[in-house]
Design a binder for these strands. Sequence first.
DNA 1: TTGTTTGTACAGAAAAAACTGTACAAAACT
DNA 2: AGTTTTGTACAGTTTTTTCTGTACAAACAA
Lengths: 182, 182
Amino acid sequence: MEGKEALDKARERIIETIAQNIHLYGLTSSAGRQFGTMFFHNEPMTLDEMTEELGMSKTSMSTSVRALSDLKLVERAWKRGVRKDLYQVKDDWYQSFIDLFSIKWRRSISLHSTAIKKSLSELESLVEDPETSEEVKELAQQDAARLEYIRDYFEWLDRLVDAFENHEIFNLVPLTKDLKDK
Amino acid sequence: MEGKEALDKARERIIETIAQNIHLYGLTSSAGRQFGTMFFHNEPMTLDEMTEELGMSKTSMSTSVRALSDLKLVERAWKRGVRKDLYQVKDDWYQSFIDLFSIKWRRSISLHSTAIKKSLSELESLVEDPETSEEVKELAQQDAARLEYIRDYFEWLDRLVDAFENHEIFNLVPLTKDLKDK
DNA sequence: TTGTTTGTACAGAAAAAACTGTACAAAACT
DNA sequence: AGTTTTGTACAGTTTTTTCTGTACAAACAA
């Protein structure tokens, strides 16, 4: 087993880097360490193996593996004869990035769009209402203009997510550098 | 001032939506509320005005306006005769998105790339070292293959950020829907 | 110079999040 | 059927983050 420590050191560096950056995905560093450990593990892992490997409670392993699964960074695996749930990291990191991007932003876009639509229609009624004072009317029109701007922005963002989901993004940014057209 | 409450309600809905989604930018909902308030404010605001408007301490206003500035969501403004610092939201949300995307990911990509490079070179020495046992050698080669994969992934991510920064992304996802080529 | 004003550093308080251990339901085995 | 195993809900604890108030340095005014 000569060189085992060096191997571990090289692994640990990567795992720790993932742990320290995974907050970008809205996850804790513990979840990142868990992900990193699974990444280097040749076989799918059980919760008990993760508990063993990371020295944390099984409850924690369960909750963070769920968080990782929700973001499609990890998936369940099956192996005949094994009763315990098995998990492994998804092997397509490009797709994982796209899934993450989509999951995170779609929801936000939808919430914003709904709110903007509602407020915009309220402002419209306000402007058309003869009861409304001139002063308020002017403010309402100002706000409406702002909302129309961000409505367009979120509409653009939505099309951006589309471009990731349908992989059009790979036309602009190809997988391999040398294939880059033009 | 007939209709003022309706106006406020329409504003508050948007501000609250921003507050509840700004965690995507790694910011707290308080910072989101602050951003939203500034968004609807016609003039640049001072820290004291924010304190007044949001009912929070000036210290908090100072720290979160700094966080908003770091992400390029807010910028300083100048107005002759005003001694206090003035802040306003950047009016180009598309550019803000790009800045955010760039700031967040560039750092992560750089940290990962450095770690990967280092570990990869360590693994290489390990494989070439005659002292290394065959067993470890094989594991090292496995790990190296994995690291080469994610090295390419981060290299792609870097080119993706390029495509945002240099606005090539607008070729793929145009600002206005009808201009969409093809 | 001295006196204000303004923004932020810092320490402590309050709130939120992460983590653990127990308890238990669902599933799998016998 | 009963027994064992496995994952997670939940309550309580620990840790982290957010927020506040005080204190003070830098900038400005007179």
